[in-house]
Design a protein around this nucleic acid. Structure first.
Lengths: 364, 364
DNA sequence: AATTATTTGTGCGTATGTATC
DNA sequence: AGATACATACGCACAAATAAT
């Protein structure tokens, strides 16, 4: 112990003990000397020793067992006492997200956890805000759909902080590229889109336009599958037939460009879309232009959502597991919470979607 | 302060002081009596008083200033810019609740709020735990489906604490009886069940069994509508034809008693159920006993959920607005957050449900 | 099965230090 | 300077839980 500072005796003892713990001279689970023996050793009253110990108990370094002794906390597992899980998604109440979130809730609340729901609207600044927020609140774990996962993220520091605090996190739909080993559950977006395009080619389509989102990983991968399927089907990949949009112009650009394509009569016979939301908008656009689906143009969406089932012509779409995806993410997180080894050995789950054939494509 | 529990003195004092704070008898910023005067007042040693106070300081209820005094923490300030809303429901991911929660999320996240989701499993002790939890986190408001709303609640103190901190809250589905003026949105459960029974009477049914939940307000009101409809239809109300169950025995008692009814062949020609969950179980029971719905027994559920649509014979049910109910609750809360006058003038919204006629009832 | 030693938990008394008004 | 309030510190006694004898 130190020489004479002007610090209080209990405070110096507390610092000494904390140091012993941090330097692993007192190891997790190990018993610390009894109050009486510490008092004797450091020539203090038991009361003073108790004060020092109670501070460390409050900070979580130690815990006491009545009649047995005082022990060093194994704070790799310490987070267990928080039963709050942060869930950050791009959207919550729209599209397929309610179902994904329901799947997460199902599993987590069955296991006694509460959920802190936040949506970023795909805005990395909001993501940063919420990550900071959740770090301050004391959460046991995090499930996150990254915002703009294709772009470089400034939020990596927060994930490193989570690593530092041994707070496990699971990505869904995509993950920030720069993180080396992370747990995630996502779709094989390329394979899904490949199936859609392959199907159109089999039906005899020659000019397949594609609409893709440029600022998330899903969009890039779906585009990859599109290009690969064209190549394998011996069709030319024509950059001019591809529409790229982003979060900011998603409500206007896809339909505007497709309208232009149609007005130019450049001979497109089908369109594959980033998701059902876009597909549904394109369907409405085409209907408004008196272009018939599927007679004039075949159309395929992605995610097999209610949007592809509600239109007057049901839109063929690539499946999305929705609740199942949420459940898997939650189960992965639970495993990581149970066994801290999983923090080092990430669990990665890729689901291969299938094509759900409805009414929006016909043989050419 | 209380009488003699076997709790420790310091603990009882701590609870007493915490209660004073939660009930706003000690207001934020206000100075609490000095250690010596508390010791004198409660005939305790100063040391014991200090122990109680130090716990409350640790939990953040109080803070001390050396040489000046001990003060009540003002967590109002922090709350003002909080964009977090607590949502406590009995269940989250089952039955109609995902839709209700989705409605809440829709409105709140559109207005920039995050949601803290907790489910009580209809256990008032968990409700208490979560209410305390949310009071310590800084939430801007609360939407709550009360647990066991028919029974006397020990959790009223927390709602008074919310009042004291100007945190608005909205009840859904029911409300704790003892609170005088609260905002809520709920169904006219009596009217809904009345319509169901009236419909059965019109179809010529004479012996209508009823299954009701005894520990929430909805159950009592649905029973009320049942009894009133029988009376108006000049049928005898027979207590032996009524099954009461509670949260704890919901999975066993309703079907067991109905099985007994059937084995006794007491001439029941129809069953109205507290909700679709019960109705679905009864349907499966009857089918298992080779009793046909609706040929032998007519059956009506409540909530118009997927359960009443998924069975082989679609079950006639009383409608429930689900998302709409969630949206209304969220909108009420937003109004209360915007205009603090609403805290004094509660907004109460009662939705009258209708009967959704499907396939489970026929003319006798 | 009862006893005993050890350890933490509760509670009181006292004295002194130090910051605030 | 003095009164008041919280902070530190020591000592003592007994209660309650635990583990070993």
């Amino acid at each position: 112990m130190q020489k004479n500072d002007n610090k209080a005796k209990y405070y110096k003892l507390m610092e000494y003990l904390k140091d012993e713990i941090l330097m692993s001279r007192i190891k997790p689970g190990e018993q610390v000397p009894s109050e009486n023996s510490l008092a004797e050793e450091f020539l203090l009253s038991r009361h003073t020793v108790r004060k020092a110990i109670s501070m460390l108990v409050n900070e979580g370094y130690l815990y006491t067992e009545h009649g047995k002794g005082t022990y060093c906390t194994d704070w790799n597992r310490k987070r267990t006492n928080s039963k709050n899980i942060g869930v950050i998604t791009t959207y919550i109440s729209e599209y397929i997200f309610p179902k994904v979130v329901t799947g997460i809730e199902q599993v987590l609340s069955d296991n006694g956890y509460s959920i802190f729901l936040k949506n970023t609207n795909n805005n990395p600044l909001k993501e940063a805000l919420y990550l900071e927020d959740l770090l301050e609140n004391n959460i046991a774990g995090l499930i996150i759909e990254p915002s703009k996962s294709a772009l470089f993220s400034n939020n990596l520091q927060y994930f490193k902080a989570l690593d530092g605090h041994n707070i496990p996190y699971v990505f869904i739909h995509g993950y920030h590229q720069k993180l080396e080993a992370t747990s995630y559950v996502m779709l094989d977006d390329a394979a899904g889109m490949y199936k859609a395009v392959e199907y159109l080619i089999k039906l005899g389509h020659k000019r397949i336009a594609g609409i893709f989102k440029g600022d998330d990983m899903q969009g890039l991968n779906r585009h990859k599958g599109y290009a690969q399927a064209l190549f394998d089907g011996r069709l030319l990949y024509n950059p001019d037939d591809v529409v790229w949009f982003s979060t900011e112009d998603k409500d206007t650009k896809p339909t505007e460009v497709i309208r232009q394509f149609m007005e130019e009569k450049r001979g497109i016979d089908s369109v594959v879309c980033y998701n059902d939301d876009i597909a549904f908008r394109v369907f409405e656009l085409l209907t408004g232009m008196s272009i018939k689906v599927p007679e004039d143009i075949s159309l395929i969406g992605f995610d097999d959502s209610y949007l592809s089932a509600n239109s007057s012509v049901k839109i063929t779409s690539v499946s999305h597991p929705k609740e199942k995806l949420g459940e898997i993410a939650a189960q992965i997180l639970l495993q990581m919470l149970k066994d801290s080894n999983y923090l080092k050995n990430p669990i990665q789950n890729v689901i291969t979607p299938g094509l759900v054939i409805k009414e929006s494509c016909i043989q050419r």
